[in-house]
Nucleic acid binder design. Structure first.
Length: 487
RNA sequence: GGCCCCAUCGUCUAGGCUGGUCUAGGACACCGCCCUUUCACGGCGGCGACACGGGUUCAAAUCCCGUUGGGGCUACCA
């Protein structure tokens, strides 16, 4: 059993963002790869931004992706698991406070009685005068005096020591920071609530996290955290700061953008395994060169931090489409069928009029063509609804030509002559007609497709006819013929 | 503003640490051909990059410095 323990620590202030999902995924795959433990911790210390509805939404995202945790809070319909909880930061307040007071006692922290206004003013003038911010006078307050004033409105600040801090990072290398760049940051708010920095460090230490894998927006914070780990007497974990996910324009993936919510991808007909495969590739290169297609299990086998990328990557919808298509092709047909039926039903089609065998055939003829699950709708809507319009371009090309009506009549007669109706018998009949009249197959197929589907593209024509049945096919041919005559 | 991180085809990347084997490899996208009743799938081929400027060196995509561009931190948010 590996000793690796890593975690995802989202703050439930919205849906599951694609960037958070990447971090969760890297932690999860790393834990699975090493046989370690993956912990979910909810960072809900900022009560104003937290909402139970967000907690639910985030849970739904994880559930859809199939990213499961070994330890975590009660979440959605899952019960709390793990010995090192509670796993909601809001339930750990006293632990954080204890750590804060311990720091106060050991002189690693001090009470600061400055007002927010004073601080803001100093920050601004320092900025304007291009000088380093002055240290807070409270830093040097006599500890006895500070103790006497402890009922006054104040914060607790960490006393950043002189010198340098080195963060050893698995992906960024060693990053050295001059401690003067790190202001004495607040660790306890006036109401006693812990600030993020204190809370993460205490929780990571107490939950025995060995690998802190998170976004590189925390790289600078890591120096503060290392200082806190040291001051509290905890062992430092290993760090890995991963680049964030960029949108297609190369900008930070905004929350407002479609696709920022991982569930957008579900709704658009993407497979979770495809999204996972794609996001994994966005910042990790398989050791096995020139390989891109992975199942979840293969990913869990192959995922290694030595090949994590340092530079940020854009989200490329086209490549996701391709990968999604690959995963659809790899899907068990029965499983695919179930998903397609669900989508058609959701789209409002009456799926009860077709039986299981019919859907199996539909799935078979569509599996090779789909890039997303949702494309099944445009690929098969004409099986469920009557034809009311025809695409303009193919009408011009196939029907507004000399002899179109006559050809349609011949094709109808041909269809009527087919007794045992299936793709092969109809194809044979068309071939026979073609040979008898000297007409190429294409010349017959395209007008037929237009009559049967109203479109110029779709699955194989004879497969479509088989699925439609003889009666409906002929009726649609006659409807097409009538349309031609009305032109 | 200060500090930190990043920088190879349009996009994701290999190579960089251990300089020569890189006339820079793969994938997506795009274009062409083949397969084919359409589209897609599949096969074959094409287009296409070391951000810029200085060094170091016999030799630099690879090492160093600077510039530019992108991102982050600089909160009594996380």
């Amino acid at each position: 059993m590996s000793t690796v323990r890593c975690r995802i620590a989202p703050s439930p202030s919205g849906f599951l963002h694609i960037g958070t999902a990447k971090m969760a995924l890297f932690n999860w795959l790393f834990a699975r790869k090493t046989g370690g433990t993956f912990v979910l911790r909810l960072e809900d210390t900022d009560a104003e931004r937290t909402d139970e509805a967000f907690v639910q939404a985030m849970c739904e995202g994880f559930t859809w992706l199939g990213v499961d945790w070994d330890e975590g809070p009660a979440f959605g319909d899952k019960a709390a698991v793990g010995e090192l909880g509670p796993y909601r930061q809001s339930d750990r307040k006293s632990v954080h406070q204890d750590a804060g007071y311990k720091l106060l006692k050991t002189g690693h922290a001090y009470r600061c009685f400055c007002t927010k206004e004073e601080l803001d003013a100093e920050r601004e003038s320092a900025q304007q005068e291009k000088r380093r911010k002055m240290k807070c006078p409270c830093r040097d307050l006599d500890s006895g005096e500070a103790e006497n004033r402890k009922d006054e409105h104040h914060t607790v600040r960490f006393r950043v020591p002189e010198g340098h801090t080195e963060v050893v990072d698995l992906v960024q290398g060693t990053v050295r920071t001059d401690n003067r760049e790190l202001d004495d940051f607040v660790i306890l708010k006036p109401n006693g609530d812990p600030i993020f920095h204190l809370a993460v460090v205490v929780d990571d230490a107490l939950m025995q996290i060995t690998h802190v894998i998170r976004g590189d927006d925390h790289l600078t914070n890591a120096a503060r955290h290392v200082l806190l780990f040291d001051a509290l007497g905890y062992d430092r974990p290993q760090f890995a700061h991963l680049p964030m996910v960029l949108d297609e324009q190369g900008k930070k993936f905004s929350k407002r953008l479609h696709g920022a919510n991982v569930l957008d991808w579900r709704d658009d007909g993407y497979l979770p395994e495809a999204l996972i495969n794609y996001v994994a590739l966005l910042g990790w290169t398989p050791a096995e060169e020139n390989r891109e297609l992975f199942t979840i299990e293969e990913l869990q086998q192959a995922f290694a931090p030595e090949r994590w990328s340092k530079s940020a990557a854009r989200f490329d919808r086209k490549k996701l489409d391709w990968l999604n298509g690959q995963h659809i092709r790899a899907l068990n047909p029965t499983v695919l069928q179930g998903r397609l039926v669900a989508i058609l039903e959701q789209a409002g089609f009456d799926v009860s009029q077709k039986d299981d065998a019919w859907f199996a055939t539909l799935t078979e003829v569509c599996q090779e063509k789909l890039a997303t699950l949702n494309q099944i709708i445009e690929l098969s809507d004409y099986f469920f609804t009557d034809i009311t319009t025809y695409e303009e371009k193919p009408v011009k090309k196939q029907w507004q030509v000399e002899g179109a009506a006559e050809l349609m009549s011949q094709l109808i007669a041909c269809m009527e002559g087919v007794d045992l109706w299936n793709r092969d018998t109809l194809k044979e009949a068309y071939h026979a007609l073609g040979e008898a009249t000297g007409t190429g197959l294409g010349k017959m197929v395209h007008p037929t497709r237009l009559a049967l589907t109203g479109k110029s593209i779709g699955p194989g024509l004879f497969e479509i006819a088989e699925l439609l049945g003889k009666e409906v096919s002929i009726a649609r041919m006659q409807q097409g013929l009538a349309y031609i005559n009305s032109l």
